[in-house]
Amino acid sequence: MKHVVELRNITKTYVIGEIQVKALRGISFGIAPGEFVAIMGASGSGKSTLMNILGCLDQPTAGEYYLNNREVSNLSAAELARLRNRELGFVFQSYNLLPRLDAIHNVELPLIYAGVGLAERKERALAALERVGLTERAKHRPVELSGGQQQRVAIARALINEPKLILADEPTGNLDTASSLEIMQIFQELNERRGITVIIVTHEEDIAAFSKRILRFRDGLLIEDAPVVGKGAATHEISR
């Protein structure tokens, strides 16, 4: 397996009335298994559009997107839903938990759509919650959890179907520094101990510093692709 994600000359053009907005103007890169990549860029740089395409929520106007070596840019809505369910884990800035469900039911949600039976769902959801250190909060609803805890529930949900790739869209955007570090530590652990590929969108350099590679975007173009140097700084932050 060469790449988890490979983009070839991806473009995305939105048509709003008479005006064409080119959100992505020919993006190509590949991400190998086990990488930890940060995507950075100002608002309007096209990074959200890129995230939606990577997450199979949207499809490119042109170009090829290989997810786990399979071309997915022309799949039907139903097949894309299946990919989102089985091959990807999503973590959002605003957690996106269902407010009426407690933590364990939020975590097991993707398994329901995967057709897994009740008993196995419960077991796997508990295991996923344990992995993010929230076993004792399984029966709490999102409103009863702190921001950091909610995001950990969301990570447990993203992990539940054992995806090879986790996409995180500004996962620490709503969190204080301490919680942010906690969340990044979890991502780092997943990446280093379990070999899960992590792609994270962020504004903040010190969050990006947790990654091993940074992709910078401006005006719909990839302008810089560089490995992270001085990785010790991030590790140091964690141990503090």
């Binding site: 839903a81 996106n96 759509y113």
Partner: peptide, 16 residues
């Protein structure tokens, strides 16, 4: 609407 978005994002099919 948001709940529907979340469900779709984590893999719910249209028919579901």
């Amino acid at each position: 609407i948001r709940e529907i978005g979340i469900r779709k994002a984590i893999g719910a099919q249209e028919k579901e």
